[in-house]
Amino acid sequence: MLKPTNPSGYFKAVSQVVSNQLNVGKQIAVLPKQTKSFAPPPNNSFIALSRALPNGNVTISVGPAVTSQVRWAHTDIQVPSWDNYRRDSTKKTDVKNAETEESRKNFTYLMAGALGVGSAYAAKSVVTHFVSSMSASADVLALAKIEVKLSDIPAGKSVTFKWRGKPLFIRHRTADEISAEQSVAVASLRDPQHDNERVQKPEWLVVLGVCTHLGCVPIANAGDFGGYYCPCHGSHYDASGRIRKGPAPLNLEVPHYEFPSDELLVVG
């Protein structure tokens, strides 16, 4: 901006310079040619250093040669030490890292493997306990078997026991009954089973006392065939427990049993 050195004279000149045909305006004020010069501040001065720093809002210019990062950090920031997190073998300055690589990997995998072993043990234990909880408990198992002393049952007699909530017939058959049942023609039976398939020892018949018709309990030593007779609907079973007459469709069921000795019978 130009600043007149003598403003009052300048204004006077303006009032006089209004020209017309008669009076040619003449230049009465000569503006001095102004030159401006700034002495560069010394490089280490406060001003120079403050100009070198970015100030105000930093904006990012876009361009191939323009970096978009302003680094504020200075050399007085320390690099953190990670020594607490490093393996001891990597801290040695006289050993190459590659030489201890396997031992470091082994340690890591050993830890992971130990976790795997523990997990496998825990999983197996959980599954085992769960599965074993589904099996019968000890009090149920104790009732599941019945022991019968065979010498207490005379020949020709049928004795009833309670086994798993159901009646169990144990019949000491006489020689006549055995030979009679052995000679029955299998083809003539409703549920064809030979006598040998139904007994382990011919003297002992072991059957469940549940009529296969509707579940009544048959009466021993009764009926047309000398075996069992169901009073509910008149089913006749022979001395081998086979259905011979009446509505029942199947022979009396033979449970699993065994003879641990000659004097003892275990059913179940």
């Binding site: 493997g113 795997g116 072993v117 523990g118 496998a120 043990y121 197996k124």
Partner: peptide, 11 residues
């Protein structure tokens, strides 16, 4: 395999 085998003895 090593895990399973170790679990056998570990158990």
């Amino acid at each position: 395999l090593a895990c399973v085998a170790s679990a056998f003895f570990f158990e």
